[in-house]
């Protein structure tokens, strides 16, 4: 029973973080209709910024959120403005050119980091990195709990932003029907730029709050990109609520898989869920909740 509870807790904590990663991807997918295969790589960039700030300047990883998120927003906006938007006007046979572009961008980001920081593993050690507390028999990692609550905070903020603000409404309008939004006077180009920036900033936040408990090397982005698209498919394209449930599901599935089946199957489980969802619930959780 203890193992079960412990696994449950680990899964939920991990799931909160995954949700944050997934929301960014889901937003981008909903508005632009493209899979951002550079998502994990953007997270890696944020992690390196956090590492540099903490290692050379001495800023606490959580405080550096105020620097990583704006820089990632800027990076994302620039990527959208100068590489993805021009592609919309180019006619080509395949509509997947933008997806390929994100692959290329991901490569450039990874290799630039490798060029600057080499392939060595880096980590940020803080006083709370290894700290834990106990509730009954269940142990909680302090850093993971903080990360979980920050992730929940950002998620709630995103909700408010998408539902109540003008830009948020424009984003949702563009996601629902691009042409209609354009007719209603929404500057869709601007919205795509803001959306990509937001997506990058959110995944950047996830990377930053993961930094005290994780290690870092240039290729770390790949697995997270894969996780992000599993979450997005699970939740339904463009659905914020879906992304949270998708993240929780993936976190729980991975935790239970690791406890009861074996660590080696960690990644497999996500992919199998992914294929099952594609087959039996195309449209993801969004279909069930209608939100």
């Amino acid at each position: 029973m203890d193992i079960f509870l412990q696994t449950l807790v680990a899964g939920i904590l991990k799931g909160g973080l995954y949700g944050l990663i997934g929301i960014g991807m889901s937003l981008i997918m909903g508005v632009m209709g493209i899979i951002n295969l550079a998502h994990g790589q953007l997270m890696m960039v944020a992690m390196y910024i956090t590492f540099v700030l903490s290692h050379y300047v001495g800023i606490d990883p959580y405080l550096s959120l105020f620097i990583t998120m704006p820089s990632l927003f800027l990076l994302g906006a620039l990527i959208q403005k100068y590489t993805l938007n021009p592609l919309m006007e180019v006619d080509s046979i395949l509509p997947e050119n933008q997806v390929l572009m994100t692959v290329g961008i991901g490569m450039v980001l990874v290799e630039t980091s490798r060029f600057i920081f080499t392939s060595d593993y880096k980590s940020v050690q803080t006083s709370y990195s290894d700290a834990t507390f106990y509730l009954g028999e269940i142990s909680f990692s302090v850093a993971l709990v903080i990360a979980f609550f920050i992730a929940i905070g950002f998620t709630l903020f995103m909700f408010w932003f998408l539902l109540k603000t003008d830009i948020g409404r424009s984003i949702r309008a563009t996601a629902q029907d691009k042409d209609a939004a354009l007719l209603m006077g929404v500057d869709s180009k601007k919205i795509t730029i803001i959306t990509f920036g937001l997506g990058a900033a959110l995944v950047g936040a996830a990377g930053t709050i993961l930094m005290p408990i994780y290690y870092l090397f240039p290729d770390i982005g790949g697995p997270f990109t894969r996780k992000a698209f599993v979450i997005t498919i699970l939740g339904g394209l463009g659905s914020t609520v879906g992304a949270i449930f998708g993240g929780l599901t993936l976190g729980l599935a991975e935790a239970f898989g690791a406890s009861y089946i074996g660590m080696a199957y960690d990644d497999m489980i996500g992919l199998i869920i992914f294929i099952l969802v594609l087959l039996f619930l195309p449209g993801g959780f969004k279909r069930l909740t209608k939100i």
Partner: peptide
Amino acid sequence: VLGFGILVVLVILYLP
């Protein structure tokens, strides 16, 4: 590999 990645980006942009 960095040069290679940049080439990919340029080709998709200008030679789709």
